[in-house]
C-alpha cells in the first residue's frame, strides 16, 4: 500500500526551542493511524509541524507533492483537515459562523455534519463560547468534516471529556474513517483500540515504534514500556464533564 502522507526527518521549533527532534513515519491512504506517546513527547507538535503552524524542516510529502515549504492555508486547501487539541473554536462566533468559516467547497456537507451532530443544527445561532466542552469538540470536528478531505488530522479529541461524550466522539470518528483516512493523536487507549489500524509511537521527539495496532495493543508489557501506562488504566488523565 502506497503512503498518502510521508514524513521524513521532521524537526519543529517554537520560539527557538526544538519541540520535534527527528520524526519519520508514513500514513497510508485508508484507515486510522494513531500517534501515541507520553505527555509532552511532541505528538501535537508533530501535527503542527506537518501543517506549518510551527517552523519546521525536513521532508513532508502529501500524495506525491512536497508540502514542507507551503504555508498552512495551502496545505489545508490541498485536502488536509485539522482538528486541534483543545478544540480552538471561535468563541465569539456562533456555531453556524464557525462552520461557514470552515466551509471551503461550493457544496459544503451540511447534511452530513448535522446528521452526525444533530445538536449543532439546534444550536446554530448560539455563540460557540457558551457551549460545553463536548459540544465545542463537535463544532471543531464538524469544521473539519464539512469539507471533503483527503486526510483528517485529529489531535486528542477526547481530552477532558466525560465518558459518554468520549463515546460519541469515537462514534463520529469511526463514521468519518469509512470515507477518509485519519491521523489521530490520542491518549485514551480504549478509543485507540476501537479506531486505530496502525500505531506510531513517539518518545522524546523521535519515532520509537511503528506497526499494526493490534500487535502493540495486545502486548501489555510493550505498552507499559513504550507509553508508561498499564492497560488497566485506560485513561490516565482526569475527565471533566
Amino acid at each position: 500500500m502506497s503512503a498518502l502522507l510521508t514524513v521524513k526527518n521532521l524537526r519543529a521549533t517554537v520560539a527557538g526551542q526544538q519541540v520535534v527532534e527527528d520524526v519519520s513515519f508514513e500514513v497510508p491512504a485508508t484507515g486510522v493511524t494513531a500517534v501515541l506517546g507520553r505527555n509532552g513527547v511532541g505528538k501535537s507538535s508533530t501535527l503542527k509541524g506537518i501543517l506549518g503552524l510551527y517552523d519546521r524542516t525536513g521532508e513532508v510529502t502529501f500524495d506525491g507533492a512536497r508540502i514542507d515549504r507551503e504555508p498552512t492555508h495551502r496545505i489545508v486547501q490541498s485536502g488536509i483537515a485539522y482538528v486541534p487539541e483543545d478544540r480552538e473554536v471561535f468563541t465569539m462566533l456562533t456555531v453556524e459562523e464557525n462552520l461557514t468559516l470552515a466551509a471551503r467547497q461550493a457544496q459544503p456537507r451540511w447534511d452530513f455534519v448535522h446528521a452526525l451532530f444533530p445538536e449543532l443544527a439546534q444550536r446554530a445561532k448560539q455563540r460557540a463560547g457558551t457551549l460545553s466542552g463536548g459540544q465545542q469538540q463537535m463544532v471543531s470536528l464538524a469544521r473539519a468534516l464539512i469539507n471533503d478531505n483527503r486526510l483528517l488530522m485529529v489531535d486528542e479529541p477526547t481530552k477532558g471529556l466525560a465518558p459518554k461524550i468520549v463515546n460519541e466522539v469515537g462514534e463520529a470518528l469511526a463514521e468519518a474513517s469509512t470515507s477518509v483516512p485519519i491521523l489521530l493523536v490520542e491518549q485514551n487507549l480504549k478509543v485507540i483500540k476501537r479506531l486505530a489500524d496502525r500505531v506510531v509511537v513517539i518518545d522524546a521527539g523521535r519515532v520509537v515504534h511503528t506497526g499494526p495496532a493490534g500487535e502493540l495493543l495486545d502486548d501489555p508489557d510493550r505498552i507499559q514500556r513504550l507509553l508508561g501506562v498499564s492497560t488497566e488504566a485506560h485513561d490516565t488523565r482526569e475527565a471533566h464533564p
Binding site: L51, L53, P71, T72, H73, V76, Q77, Y82, P84, E88, F90, T91, M92, L93, E97, T100, L101, A102, R104, R143, N147
Partner: peptide
C-alpha cells in the same frame, strides 16, 4: 460578509483561521 467573518475569527485566533485553509 465573509471577509468580516474572517477578520472577527482572526482577531480571536489567527493561527486557527489559517488552519482552516484561509489565507489570512
Amino acid at each position: 460578509t465573509r471577509y468580516g467573518l474572517i477578520i472577527r475569527a482572526g482577531v480571536e485566533n489567527r493561527a486557527m483561521v489559517t488552519a482552516l485553509g484561509i489565507d489570512v
